[in-house]
Design a protein around this nucleic acid. Structure first.
Length: 434
RNA sequence: GGAGAGGUGGGUGAGUACGGUUUAAACCACAUUCCUGCUAAGAAUGCGACCUGCGAAAGUGGGUCCGAGGGUUCGAAUCCCUCCCUCUCCGCCA
């Protein structure tokens, strides 16, 4: 949530920043007007409330001194004021609710570093990485054997059963089998181990309360992209960011414990409501996938380093896996609702001949912390923490990139060295001999 | 799922039978200062969060918060209703 006090204090700055991501200034003007009206009503209600309290105190006093006549008179007077107080409070509460509803729909202010731009075509490519780059190797040219889409590779090796997934849960719910399932498991275990030096491993619930989903900004704005379990008033999490951000909800932390860094692998559920018919083949876009997330609560001044650390770790995993990738600085228009700055990592997958987003590393400033009410103590009071997070990594697309990139001419697939221990020493995926 | 007991500030914990000097006692912890003096002890003071008014600021006025949300009342930690959570026992279960 943006800071209403800042909007009050410097409306032009906020408007200019949000204009970069397409927010109409008129919306902000109406919020400012609501805010003024709300505080006016609040003042009226509080004044009346104070009067009622004072009268009630006097009633008590009169009763004690057995002055029933005075007590009756004061009670009548207070009752009358009470009616006015109730009306004023209701008006104030209603305005407050409207105001909050409006504020929850306003996205975060882009950071100064975030490039200008309207949509994903304006994202800025920062760099590319590929195996051998440092030794002067040119950008990879991929052989014909690597140009087979992963769903075909998987069919040959019998490691993915998309038809079975459809039978069980409908389209875009993949089912991995045999070595395919083991490969997926290896990826997650490998990544979690890589982060053990600095990030506490968490295994959170895969469902979250509405309040929890609000904190990260996934609700109310992206409601249609979330799976709802209405009977129990729960939502399926779209990323571990959701539970991790709420770990310390409504808490005031000692500054000395920051940064708090956590990592978690969870299933991620996404309805992909706006993208029906797009990327329907294979693992390019699925309703459920596993992902390891890195997350940090930090002091504002720690946030840039925390962001850089998560980015470096995500890149480090890609490099250890030997996958070609590029780094994109997201432009203001393509930023997620809650983010002030986001850097995406896209892996190149030769079989489908596309760059696939496999990580999104974001700095939210205090936007999520304000919603989640996570603060730390300072000498002069409390401040909201900053939150930073990033995927490291999203495995469905990595899985696809691995089986495409490392496919050999004989049709088998080489397991990246770093994963071999996690597959019990197995070095290749080979077609079953039947 | 059933029965019972509970949920009060950072912690412990009074207050709830009977609504009003409770603006939530006391203790611990914590902070500052003083005294003392050496791996101690003592004294004084302070000690929440949020919203909001006035003020340049220091500050100061008001409101809200006793698990959550409603209700009754001139007035609710206290009475009523719904829900959540914790503990004990029973049932069921990987």
């Amino acid at each position: 949530m943006i800071d209403i006090a800042q909007l009050r204090r410097e409306p032009d700055v906020v408007k200019a920043a949000l204009a970069r991501r397409g927010v109409d200034g008129a919306v902000l003007d109406s919020i400012i007007a609501l805010d003024v009206a709300h505080r006016q009503r609040l003042q009226e209600a509080e004044k009346l409330r104070a009067d009622v309290k004072e009268l009630s105190r006097q009633v008590g006093e009169a009763r004690r001194t057995k002055d029933n006549e005075t007590a009756e008179a004061l009670t009548a007077q207070s009752r009358e004021l009470g009616g006015a107080e109730r009306a004023a409070s209701e008006a104030s509460d209603e305005l407050a609710a409207t105001l909050r509803g409006e504020l929850l729909m306003i996205p975060n202010l882009p950071s100064e570093d975030t490039p200008d731009g309207a949509d994903e075509s304006d994202n800025v490519e920062v760099r590319r990485w590929w195996v051998g780059m440092d030794d002067g190797a040119p950008f990879p040219t991929y052989g014909e054997h690597q140009r087979m889409p992963h769903w075909e590779v998987a069919k040959e090796l019998n490691i993915l059963d998309l038809e079975a997934g459809v039978k069980l849960a409908g389209s875009m719910f993949p089912l991995y089998r045999g070595d395919g399932s083991r490969l997926l498991r290896a990826l997650g275990a490998f990544a979690l181990d890589q982060h053990r030096d600095a990030y506490e491993e968490i295994r959170p619930p895969s469902f979250a309360l509405t309040e929890t989903m609000m904190s990260t900004g996934h609700l109310p704005k992206s409601q249609d992209d979330m799976y709802a379990i209405e009977r129990d008033d729960l939502w399926a999490i779209p990323t571990a960011e959701v539970p991790l951000t709420s770990m310390h909800r409504n808490e005031i932390l000692d500054a000395s414990v920051l940064p708090i860094r956590m990592t978690a692998q969870t299933p991620c559920f996404r309805r992909e409501a706006g993208s029906a018919g797009r990327d329907t083949r294979g693992l390019l876009r699925v309703h459920e996938f596993d992902k390891v997330e890195l997350f940090a609560y930090c002091l504002p001044e720690q946030a840039p380093a925390a962001h850089a650390d998560i980015l470096a770790r995500a890149e480090g995993l890609l490099q250890k896996l030997g996958l070609t990738y590029r780094v994109l600085d997201l432009c203001a228009g393509d930023l997620g609702t809650s983010s002030a700055r986001t850097v995406d990592l896209e892996v190149f997958s030769p079989g489908v001949d596309r760059w696939l987003e496999v990580s999104s590393v974001s700095w939210f400033r205090d936007f999520q912390a304000r919603r989640a009410n996570v603060r730390y103590r300072t000498e002069s009071g409390t401040q909201f923490v900053h939150t930073v997070n990033g995927s490291a990594l999203a495995w469905a697309r990595i899985w696809a990139a691995v089986v495409e990139t490392f496919r050999l001419e004989d049709g088998s697939v080489t397991i990246p060295d770093v994963l071999v221990p996690y597959l019990g020493g197995q070095t290749h995926l080979v077609a079953p001999t039947s």
